[in-house]
Design a protein around this nucleic acid. Structure first.
Length: 213
DNA sequence: ACATTAAGTGATT
DNA sequence: AATCACTTAATGT
């Protein structure tokens, strides 16, 4: 068994039949990306869909001024449906995808996706299901934006990152966090200090330790 | 030693 | 919660 097939199998054998896994392995193009690599930018056209085999991808939006806002993460076993929908209609991407950590992505050509929708029941279920998951994540993002104050948003963001990175040590700067939450560095610095005083985190230069319980 | 970048803080809106 | 206008600390060259 090839290494790629093992990876696909270990991620998807529960949901996909063997034939489909073979197809995926045959047509998929494996890409290893490093942390902070740009996978897909806003406005960019694309003819492939990413299947995340390992690591995590940050999906974000941007306004006219170039201010960013991160929406959610794609993790192991996830695929990006926004990409999916726009892709079939030959649209441009409305979101940006940046590797949050070193990741392995399997790119699948768009034609195959359509084909599989008809030929594989498990693929159909997977696509519908992942639409559902993505919608939930979007709702969560909206709730966070609409109902949470910045201090709560920040703490949530830190906890999300800990989960995604699988580490309580976050190598990031106040500036980067500010960009993710679409606010200013000064605000983040103050709120982080507050969290440190509450013994929820410990601050270092370029590094934050989150005390997770 | 100097420049650059990250982080801390009071005052103001 | 955002902005200004600094200061201080850490790091790179």
């Amino acid at each position: 068994m090839t290494m790629l097939k093992e990876k696909v199998t270990s991620n998807f054998s529960h949901i996909f039949e063997d034939d489909l896994i073979n197809e995926i392995v045959n047509v998929g193009i494996l890409k290893k990306v490093k942390e902070n690599d740009l996978l897909l930018d806003i406005g960019q056209k694309f003819d492939m869909i990413p299947l995340v085999l390992s690591g995590a991808i940050k999906i974000s939006r941007e306004d006219e001024n170039g201010d960013e806002l991160s929406l959610y993460f794609l993790e192991q076993g996830d695929t990006c449906n926004i990409t999916f929908g726009s892709g079939l209609n030959c649209e441009q991407s409305k979101v940006r995808g940046i590797a949050e950590r070193d990741s392995e992505i399997l790119f699948i050509p768009l034609e195959k996706l359509e084909e599989w929708l008809i030929t594989f029941k498990s693929w159909r279920s997977f696509v519908i299901n992942s639409y559902n998951i993505r919608l939930s994540e979007m709702l969560e993002a909206i709730d966070t934006l609409a109902f949470m104050k910045m201090d709560q948003r920040l703490y949530k963001h830190l906890k999300d990152k800990v989960k995604v990175m699988n580490s309580v040590i976050l190598n990031t700067t106040h500036e980067q966090i500010a960009q993710d939450l679409n606010t200013s560095r000064v605000v983040i610095s103050r709120l982080l200090k507050q969290l440190e005083n509450e013994k929820k985190i410990k601050l270092f230069r370029n590094k934050i330790e989150v005390f997770y319980s």
